[in-house]
Design a protein around this nucleic acid. Sequence first.
DNA 1: CGACTTCTTGAGGAGACTCAAGGGTGGTGG
DNA 2: CCACCACCCTTGAGTCTCCTCAAGAAGTCG
Lengths: 258, 258
Amino acid sequence: MSLLEQQEVDTARFRAYGQVDPSITDAFRRLAGPRIQAARGGVLRAQGSANPAIYVLHEGWVTSGVVVAGGARQIVKIHMPGDMMGMPSFAGLTACETLQACTAVEASVVPFDAMARIFREEPALAAFLFLITQEERAALMDRLASVGRTGAINRVATLILELHKRLLAHRPDTGDEFEAPLTQEEIADVLGLTGVHVNRTLRALRARGIAEWRHGRLRILDRDALRGLGRIACRERGRHVDWINGPGSAPAVATSAA
Amino acid sequence: MSLLEQQEVDTARFRAYGQVDPSITDAFRRLAGPRIQAARGGVLRAQGSANPAIYVLHEGWVTSGVVVAGGARQIVKIHMPGDMMGMPSFAGLTACETLQACTAVEASVVPFDAMARIFREEPALAAFLFLITQEERAALMDRLASVGRTGAINRVATLILELHKRLLAHRPDTGDEFEAPLTQEEIADVLGLTGVHVNRTLRALRARGIAEWRHGRLRILDRDALRGLGRIACRERGRHVDWINGPGSAPAVATSAA
DNA sequence: CGACTTCTTGAGGAGACTCAAGGGTGGTGG
DNA sequence: CCACCACCCTTGAGTCTCCTCAAGAAGTCG
């Protein structure tokens, strides 16, 4: 992977915010730490492990999940390239979530001290991390609403639309058919269902000509029908970011980057 | 309410982090904006409204909820005095959550510009807001696991334990019987159940001598049994906060507060 | 005291789960 | 190159949790 590609991946999440001062993404690249790899099924960081770090995902998909007594697993986030991983555990002494590879994976570890440096020296980058975290929180709220208040077919439809939207943000050339390397068991753990019932639900979507999802490959056949089934209110796109580099203050990044 | 009390409430969330530099909480007090009130059932801020602000809750309980197509509601957070409210909507152009009063409520609005000022001028406070948000995210992950992967009685037990723990952090003199002013319908919307089934579940807890929750008053009778039913893994208490005011840098707050 | 909300309980039904077994698919090693 | 193995997908039958609908009781507020 070329250095250019690597940088593109690293900052995908920031680019999504639109007109970002380039010095912000530059600042973030300087903080990237050592690279790590994992094979499918490998655990990058287990729930309960001490001194949790933060990761940036470069290649592959990763699930973030918590385990309840009895051994059941709930996946709380599907990470795709460009995502930051493990942040919810940052406040604690031990990790509250397990990061597990869905595919072969490449990521880098953000050194623990780097976060302190960001808040001291890169206020604009800190503000972006704050906004990204709020966005993650809103996504989690939507998932909770989906699991708590809608049926199986609605949950699957919502997930398909979410995955497609996120892939599209990352790679604008994503079409209606794309790789979505999750097993039905993993989908079930995301949606609060069982693997068997996910299978039946996917069969129903296939029979109705709405979507096909087999062997890690997802094809959207009828987007309007999917949207009709997905029950979560659409958000206004766009964000308040002006305040980060806004008027009334010296450019926040420039002062410290000098 | 005296000024002293008000300050105590404002900073309860920060005190929970332990040894916090007093200048941090001082800095936060200076940002408090105009006060607002609401009666039970009143909406402080509706989902979809433009230019969402952030609130600090002083008195009473508030639910934060999202609505799915069909009219069903999922409550994603129960706010108690000292909490910051509305932060997930900060990144968006419109609010993604409705803030509704469970009781008579008093709160203050944090001016929009105040957040920008925090990140520019109060890096230690910004870091605390970041940590608090990560903690909220972890709480949401636990709720999702509870709703997605456990039965009704487990969800209710988990909720009771969570409420008790949070009240205890805020008021150490909270006993095993305390005010928990939620209707069964509201509890249902938190846990992804129906009001009818919450009623039956509470009856079961009562019949087994584990807990009583009637008319907004909650009594814990058998904490061990509750813990046995609550299926979410306990977290290590304590947090990494040293890095905020840690060595190797000038005190982050002092430089800008001068 | 009256209207409204909230709580309570019953009966019946639907969606999702459990258990179980067979069939594909891809990877690995001989 | 083929055979085998592990994992994943698929489908059926029966069960159970939780929902829906409904109506009455209890509590609350003006």
